[in-house]
């Protein structure tokens, strides 16, 4: 399957990964090969087959609606690349 560098750039944009034109050129045939490999699934007749949702039968559990966790602000922030005044900080998003 052939994948255009423009498609690679679009997908990289969706995945929030910055790539250069040269990288897109290099990745295009690689992704094309992988997509070509997985396309053989199209030949399987799956009419009437349900897509799998749980590999081992299990039931979703409910628990009492009570607070069981919390008061860990400093732990949550401990690994933040940048944290100030008890918050995560990011570059300015509103002009």
């Amino acid at each position: 399957m052939s994948v255009e560098p423009a498609t690679v750039k679009r997908v990289a944009g969706l995945a929030r990964i910055a790539i250069t034109d040269a990288e897109a050129e290099k990745l295009a045939p690689e992704l094309g090969n992988i997509l070509g490999f997985i396309e053989q699934l199209g030949e399987v007749d799956t009419s009437g087959v349900e897509p799998m949702t749980a590999v081992i039968p299990n039931h979703l559990r409910l628990r009492d609606d009570v607070v069981t966790d919390g008061d860990v602000r400093d732990k949550v922030l401990a690994n933040a690349p940048q944290g100030e005044h008890g918050f995560f900080t990011v570059p300015k998003v509103i002009e």
Binding site: I38, V44, T46, V49, E50, P51
Partner: peptide
């Protein structure tokens, strides 16, 4: 979706 169906099979 096709892959998840094949997974069922």
């Amino acid at each position: 979706t096709q892959a998840q169906k094949v997974r069922t099979l």
